[in-house]
Computed example of a mutant assay.
Amino acid sequence: MRAPARSRPARRSRRDRPPVGLAVAALTAAASTVGLATTSADPLPSVDLIVNGAFDSFPWIWTCDSNVLPSHIPHDHYVTGFPTAESNARCSQRVRVRPNSTYTLNATVRGPYAFVGVTGEAGENASAWSGRSSWNSLSLQVTTGPDTTRLTVHFHGWYEQPAYDMGRISFIGPGYQPSPCGEPDSPSPTATGGSATPSPSPTCQRTYIP
């Protein structure tokens, strides 16, 4: 009795197979896509966006009322605000930020009614205050909206109240290191089209106060 004949598997037509070059190109494109995705997800570094936050250098940068004066004590840098009935002795500085990002403001203050705060283009508003007569620290956080690119950091006293002192203030979060002139360096694309890098400003130099 003869064994049943085995059926041979059908040969695959060359038309069913992708060309070798096309397969290699597809794999290369996939690898390139993964690399691009990894590069674009790299976060910006966390930096201090305030210029002259220790009040020890020129250019001064801060925009202040006329009743805010720097300390004249050598090697002891801070500013003193003298509020009046018409002025709360305010100083402010505008910083460039990233949308949908969280920033932390830290300040060292002294005196009654010493306020620090942040306001923004999309209604961002955060503030803190202290009434202690000795040096102490204030801290707050603010998160930017989806279209916010600028925030204003400010500090002040309160109308007709005693003088206050501001010793140091910082505003830390993702961004580019600001130039000595106060406006953050503009990102410029690299020659290879990769991630942006800051462009230094050659026209402004900081002079430190002794």
Rank of each mutant, 00 (worst) to 15 (best):
D185F: 02
A30R: 10
V79M: 14
L140E: 04
Q141S: 15
R94N: 06
R98L: 14
S139R: 15
P184Y: 04
L49M: 10
S40V: 15
A85E: 12
Y176K: 00
A3Q: 13
S130I: 03
P112R: 11
M1R: 08
G117V: 06
S137P: 00
S7I: 12
P202V: 05
R206L: 13
P4A: 14
E86A: 14
H75I: 01
T203A: 12
T144Y: 00
W129M: 08
P187N: 09
R206M: 11
S188V: 15
A29G: 11
N88E: 10
H154C: 00
V47T: 11
F82P: 01
G123T: 08
A23C: 03
A114W: 03
D42I: 15
A37L: 14
D76L: 11
L105P: 07
F55R: 05
Q93W: 03
A85P: 01
V68I: 15
P146R: 05
C64H: 07
G131L: 04
G194H: 07
P70Y: 01
R90Y: 00
A107R: 08
V24F: 03
V51I: 13
F115A: 01
D48P: 07
S133E: 10
C204T: 14
S127T: 11
V116W: 01
R90T: 09
R2M: 03
P180K: 02
